[in-house]
């Protein structure tokens, strides 16, 4: 599978434009993106121009862009923040919620306000509570690989040939469905219980236990048990579970897709 790029005097004219929008989060998602090391250079060299990002890009106002990567949840008492996400939605073709805070609230669900010097900032919602979000990349932090994959696939969706567009569409569909589903934005260990275990879908593979960043899940007699007090609401367990979403047709091509991802990152 070949990647479509066009050289004109050494400049890639077909790159997409990407912005990083920082709402209430810990910058861990951005760090995870950087943890692609050389990969982040490849992405920025070949596939995407970073047109917005706090401290990263010297741009004050949110520009028009193809893809907005939003990190963090939104404080509804902070008018600047709520205005900002609305503006992002208006100016971007694709809005991607990266990380637990943006997707499902994550640790900001535990915020009760009272912090100097804005003690009234106490209510934080996932971005999809305020604007339509196109793609979810859950987990705290989201993995470098997941962010890389979504960047590459979004590039292919917007700039690829028909075959690449179809593949990228297939790959991104479950993450788009997650962004629209009623439980995606409310995910926690409870969601794994309610949407998988209680519905007779769990077969005890242990994906949830491996995915949990806080080691809240253990496998007892072959089934997941959660220490819910530890759960940070990142949604990793549910979305990693092969019984949350699994597209047989796509997975059959796992080797080609892995190969393609490797090739484009070189």
């Amino acid at each position: 599978m070949e990647i479509f790029t066009e050289h004109v005097n050494g400049i890639m004219i077909h790159k997409i434009t990407i912005g990083h929008i920082h709402e209430s989060g810990c910058t861990g998602c951005l760090a995870a993106l950087m943890d692609n090391y050389q990969g982040i250079f490849t992405i920025l060299d070949k596939y995407a121009d970073l047109v917005y990002g706090l401290t990263l890009v010297d741009v004050r106002k949110i520009p028009k862009m193809d893809v907005a990567l939003i990190e963090g949840s939104v404080c509804i008492q902070d008018k600047l923040a709520t205005d900002e996400v609305r503006e992002v939605r208006d100016k971007s073709s694709v809005v991607i919620a990266i990380g637990g805070c943006a997707c499902s609230g994550n640790i900001t669900r535990f915020d009760r306000g009272g912090q100097q010097n804005q003690p009234q900032h106490e209510s934080f919602v996932p971005v999809s509570d305020l604007i339509d979000v196109d793609i979810f990349v859950p987990a705290c932090a989201p993995t470098p690989e997941a962010l890389r994959n979504v960047c590459v696939m979004t590039y292919l969706l917007l700039r690829g040939n028909d075959e690449q567009k179809a593949l990228a569409g297939m790959y991104l569909k479950p993450l788009m469905d997650l962004a629209r589903s009623p439980y995606g934005s409310k995910a926690s260990f409870n969601t794994l219980m309610q949407e998988v275990i209680n519905l007779g879908l769990c077969m005890g593979c242990g994906s949830c236990a491996a995915a949990c960043p806080v080691r809240a899940i253990t496998m007892e007699y072959g089934k997941p048990q959660g220490l819910r007090d530890l759960c940070v609401n990142c949604g990793a367990c549910f979305s990693q579970c092969p019984r949350s979403f699994f597209d047989h047709e796509l997975m059959e091509h796992h080797e080609q897709i892995m190969g393609m991802l490797k090739a484009v990152m070189q």
Binding site: C234, C237, P242, F246, H254, M258
Partner: peptide, 25 residues
């Protein structure tokens, strides 16, 4: 090594490494 559902989980971990940092490669 695994039964089919576990192999599915492995491939999902590779293609959608949502909580599986540094696993796919």
């Amino acid at each position: 090594v695994g039964v089919p559902c576990q192999i599915q989980a492995t491939r999902k971990a590779q293609l959608y490494p949502i909580g599986m940092r540094d696993v796919p490669d």
